[in-house]
């Protein structure tokens, strides 16, 4: 089984469109949408939802005012500034509550209960070229990487069950915990970047996180022709850090048109320059160790 993660420090560089294209190129695959905060692949693939699991993302404190004496003991202990006094009443600021349980443990009146956040879900089903697993984090929940781990575990089980060789992981933006969860233990990490100053900065941070995990990422420069000079800078930076550039994709409105038609670029226009380049890159990736 081969696991390939596609990430990018910066959002909007084309991670999902490129992962989706890889997923529809040849043999059936498992695609796992690890961008649980903005899962979008299901829009392209309209998968059948065959399985659904609840994910408990954390807890929130709730005060029972029939027992609360208003002593404010809990507010003294809370380190998240989540317990406030308003009109002589102790209230919980839901947005700041981290769900640590401390207030409910120390309350002398036992007036605080903890309620699980159970609105986040994991789905698994089939799409036109294999299986898909994706998580959807409920708004406002902490994206700690735990749901990403659950998505990955499910993807692995599905790959075994259906004897599929390749798992493609579409990663979240940024360089935090969910990204670490996405790349831990995979066979290959591909960073999608774009020729902007922001893109280059974020590539440097994303590469650092991959290097820290003991592997070398490789890079695809998307929309390279929007700024050929910065594309050269990125290639140069990659060269200096012995990071392989897998290929360059030009900007082409067809990429957006394909998405509007709920197709990947390689399905929408297989003779397009981008499609041909993605084909070549994907073959290389599958054949490399």
């Amino acid at each position: 089984m081969k696991q390939i993660a596609v990430i990018s420090g910066k959002g909007g560089t084309g991670k999902s469109s490129i992962s989706a294209a890889f997923a529809t190129l040849n043999n059936e695959v498992v695609i796992a949408d690890c961008d649980v905060d903005a899962a979008n692949l299901y829009l392209l693939f309209s998968p059948s939802e065959e399985e659904e699991q609840v994910y408990i993302g954390g807890y929130k404190a709730v005060i029972d005012y029939t027992f609360c004496s208003g002593c404010g003991f809990c507010a003294d202990y809370c380190r998240f500034d989540a317990i406030l006094f308003q009109n002589n009443r102790v209230i919980i600021d839901e947005i700041s509550c981290d769900g640590c349980y401390l207030c409910s443990r120390i309350c002398p009146e036992k007036a605080i209960r903890m309620i699980p956040n159970d609105k986040s879900k994991l789905y698994s089903g089939s799409f036109r070229n294999g299986r898909i697993v994706y998580g959807r984090l409920a708004p406002g929940e902490e994206n700690s990487g735990k749901l990403v781990n659950m998505v990955r575990e499910k993807a692995r089980q599905v790959a075994e069950k259906y004897c599929l060789e390749t798992i493609i992981l579409d990663g979240p933006p940024g360089i935090g915990c969910p990204v670490i969860s996405t790349i831990t233990g995979v066979d290959k990490v591909i960073i999608i970047t774009e020729p902007t100053i922001s893109g280059l900065h974020d590539l440097e941070r994303a590469a650092e996180i991959v290097l820290k995990s003991g592997r070398k990422p490789s890079v695809i420069i998307n929309k390279w022709n929007l700024n050929p000079e910065i594309t050269d800078q990125i290639r140069c930076w990659c060269g200096n850090n012995s990071i392989r550039v897998e290929g360059l994709l030009p900007f082409d409105k067809e990429m957006v048109n394909a998405m509007v038609h709920c197709k990947t670029i390689t399905e929408f226009d297989k003779d397009n320059e981008i499609s041909r380049e993605l084909n070549r890159i994907w073959k290389n990736i599958l054949n490399s160790n």
Binding site: G11, D37, A38, L137, P139, G140, E142, N143, P173, G174
Partner: peptide
Amino acid sequence: SPPGTSCPFIQTTA
């Protein structure tokens, strides 16, 4: 703001 609609987004918009 940071992207997404999880905690960091809520903190910023709230």
